[in-house]
Design a protein around this nucleic acid. Structure first.
Length: 432
RNA sequence: UCCCCGCUAGCUCAAUGGUAGAGUAACCGGCUGUUAACCGGUGUGUUGGAGGUUCGAGUCCUCCGCGGGGAGCCA
């Protein structure tokens, strides 16, 4: 008799229940109305024949508009002709608010351009594909938390307002901070290193900001990142952690997002193959592979998108590339003791999306770090606290950052990261 | 910041320099099993903006604006 979530409807076959939600679509065949109602947990077909309800209700069913908020009472029937295998035979029907016409997104996800849909993002979220992606995102984040909590990592929240650049090179959003200037964080990493020296194994999960004028389907100015950092861990340790981590998150998505993948038309077979170990390849081997694939590659240069795609090739699993040239990586990377021109870092490249993880072993020697800070022309004073970590009980340590939206895009098979965050922020979009 | 592409009806798109069109949505009518239902009917325009060339510009030229894809940078 009570209100039932559409997701759980099949367990109530034969019972009379109430569903509350919104009109998604309506089809009418004379003396028969088919309503599609969504309630946030799923989509449901409701059927009403002329004899099933009183005359006023039947007339109302014929003119109720898309997105009107409604309450439907009826009998749950298992019905193979209905999408989802179950439907509601309408007994009572009530409109809470009749939605204005026309509705801006009349045929759900169909026939609209990205720009228009982004302008209507607050309504677009209601569509089956958008809501499925957001559910996958939520479960990916839950999986991330579970993974680290199960392994006795401590959640640490680094600051969002920061006094200076973490890496100096990238552009920061600046904000007024009373009489001073402050910046929105572009990475919590340096703070996570401090936390690792206190708590051993730590991770963060939160927003990050980059004022880069990037215009690609893999970039946002505001995105979410998960950053684990581990005292005493080496590059090899975190490469193993990264592949277990990514595999865990994908497996959890497969276990919990079956309905969502159907809505997204995501073929899950490639995801089922995501298990450790991932292919590990040195930068120098990767360069050879890129050139063998006929893609241009300069000596000692970083990889761009075409190069990353060539490295992943048609591999269904992510590929881990390690030991990049010192010159193309951040100042805090630890030098490879076997080769001065290489640092102990790793990028995890996912099929179709590219880099989802970047990380490595951190420089733990005070003199080397001071030298690097000078070399990169960074303001030494801003890093005094960071250098303290190397003065007072420095140990080898490693960590990485995983981009949430890129990971969700890869798992969902979505082409754009901006579909993987509720309200995307890009260089040309801060509305809605 | 650079390169390429786009901007025409609410939306998605057509239109050799020669009367501004279709599909779809919306609205009206029909249909007892529809699946983006279908069938019939009705309306819809500062062609992103400003100049210019021309007898005539949606179309060609210049500038500007807005957006998309990519580069750089990165997750």
């Amino acid at each position: 008799m009570g209100v039932v979530a559409i997701r759980d409807l099949k367990q109530h076959a034969g019972e009379t229940v109430t569903v509350r939600g919104w009109m998604f679509n309506r089809r009418s065949a004379g003396k028969l109305h088919f309503l599609q109602v969504r309630d946030g947990s799923g989509f449901l077909q409701c059927v009403a024949g002329r004899k099933d309800v009183d005359e006023a209700t039947f007339e109302l069913l014929g003119r109720v508009t898309q997105e009107s908020s409604v309450q439907v009472e009826g009998e749950v029937r298992l019905e193979p002709r209905a999408p989802g295998g179950a439907e509601l035979g309408v007994r009572r029907f009530e409109v809470i608010q009749m939605a204005a016409q026309p509705y801006p997104i009349s045929i759900q996800d169909h026939g609209h351009g990205v720009d228009f849909l982004m302008e209507q993002r607050h309504l677009w979220l209601r569509g089956p594909k958008a809501s499925a992606t957001l559910r996958v995102r939520a479960r990916v984040i839950q999986a991330i938390r579970d993974f680290f909590n199960q392994r006795d990592f401590t959640l640490v929240d680094p600051p969002i307002l920061t006094p200076a650049a973490c890496e100096g090179t990238t552009t920061l959003f600046n904000v007024e901070y009373f009489e001073d200037k402050a910046y929105l964080t572009q990475s919590g990493q340096l703070y996570m290193e401090a936390a690792a020296m206190a708590l051993g194994k730590v991770y963060s999960l939160g927003p990050t900001f980059r004022a880069e004028k990037s215009k690609t389907r893999r970039h946002l100015t505001e995105f979410w990142m998960c950053e684990p950092e581990i005292a005493f861990a080496t590059l090899d340790d975190i490469m193993s952690l990264a592949e277990e981590f990514v595999s865990f998150v994908v497996r959890r998505a497969l276990e919990t997002c079956g309905e969502e993948f159907k809505h997204l038309e995501r073929d899950t077979k490639p995801l089922e193959k995501i298990v450790p170990p991932f292919h590990r390849i040195r930068y120098d081997e990767a360069v050879t592979k890129v050139r063998a694939a006929g893609v241009e590659m300069r000596d000692e240069d970083d990889f761009g998108t075409p190069q990353e795609m060539a490295i992943v090739g048609d591999s269904e699993k992510p590929v881990m590339v390690h030991r990049y040239p010192t010159a193309v990586k951040a100042f805090y990377m630890k030098r490879d003791p076997e080769n001065e021109k290489r640092v102990l870092c790793v990028d995890v490249l996912a099929p179709g999306i590219g880099e989802i993880i970047g990380g490595g072993q951190r420089a733990d020697d005070l003199a080397y770090l001071e030298e690097q800070i000078a070399l990169h022309k960074l303001p030494r004073a801003a890093f005094d606290w960071y250098l303290d970590l190397r003065k007072y009980g420095s140990v080898p340590h490693s960590g990485f950052g995983l981009g949430i939206e890129r990971t969700v895009a890869w798992i969902c098979g979505n082409e754009h990261v901006r579909e993987c965050i509720p309200f995307p922020r890009t260089i040309y979009r801060i509305y809605p």
